[in-house]
Design a binder for these strands. Structure first.
Length: 239
DNA sequence: CGATAATTTAGGGACAATCA
DNA sequence: TGATTGTCCCTAAATTATCG
């Protein structure tokens, strides 16, 4: 018995997809007789009739449908191999995967990515926005190469930390708010005030909370979604 | 014995003719 | 219109022969 060849399986798959040898020929970019021959060889090799020859039509037998399911699984695996090869090729040329917290993802990181791409054409870049905790996890698990966060949530020996910049925390008020007169805000100034806080998944949230806790200050916490948008006109340093 | 050249073989393709 | 078959050609792989 002759060997089953990749080309024969390709022809079988193309016929199953298109329904005709002519259609299969278009898919495979060969002549229609070539497909007919391949299909015939394929059936001889398999030893089972895969199509009923009706007038102007090839009707797949139940065996053909069963075999086709296996073929599709195999082709999906082949696609995975192809993608793996593509990824290897990309890796050879160079690639950089960046994850960033939302706050840095609007201006800072896109600007840096743009400059990096201009200086390093040929290096493929992927950029995703995640919470600080997720960024740290993605870098720790080596799914990403670089992460931009406000603070590392917990010390992880698999992460190398480089300070990128210092930034100050500010309070934002409506224009007519009494505290807007001050240049410096202390925790006790916010006693009883409505306070729009970060999400609990943000490490900075916990740091801010601990500052107020140790000062014994109670704020009226609001989640961002519950606040109607009011333009903020005044900022002051939070210390 | 390993490298290279020459020959053989198998697979895949097109074209033309034919059938249903 | 679509499928099959016969024939021929091309190419790549496998095998064999030759040479240093």
């Amino acid at each position: 018995m002759a060997n089953l060849t990749y080309r024969q399986i390709e022809a079988f798959r193309a016929v199953m997809i298109s329904g005709t040898t002519s259609g299969a020929a278009d898919i495979l970019c060969v002549s229609q007789p070539a497909v007919s021959r391949l299909l015939s060889d394929f059936e001889d090799t398999v030893g089972v009739p895969m199509f009923e020859r009706q007038k102007k039509r090839l009707v797949p037998t139940p065996e053909a449908h069963m075999f086709y399911a296996e073929v599709e699984r195999a082709f999906i695996s082949l696609e995975k191999l192809k993608r793996a090869a593509d990824e290897l090729r990309e890796l050879h040329r160079g690639s950089l995967r960046i994850a960033s917290m939302p706050a840095a993802s609007l201006e800072f990181v896109p600007f840096a990515v743009k400059r990096f791409s201009e200086d390093n054409p040929g290096v493929s870049l992927s950029f995703q926005i995640r919470s600080t905790q997720q960024v740290a996890d993605l870098v720790a698990s080596q799914q990403f190469d670089v992460g931009i966060v406000s603070a590392v949530p917990h010390m992880d020996m698999s992460i190398q930390v480089e300070p990128l910049a210092d930034s100050r925390l500010v309070c934002v008020f409506p224009q007519d708010h009494p505290l807007g007169e001050k240049d410096l805000i202390r925790p006790e100034d916010l006693e009883g005030e409505f306070f729009i806080s970060m999400g609990t998944d943000q490490s900075l949230r916990h740091k801010i909370d601990s500052v107020f806790d140790s000062a014994g200050v109670n704020r009226k916490l609001l989640v961002p979604e519950s606040v109607t948008s009011r333009p903020a006109h005044r900022t002051a340093d939070l210390q």
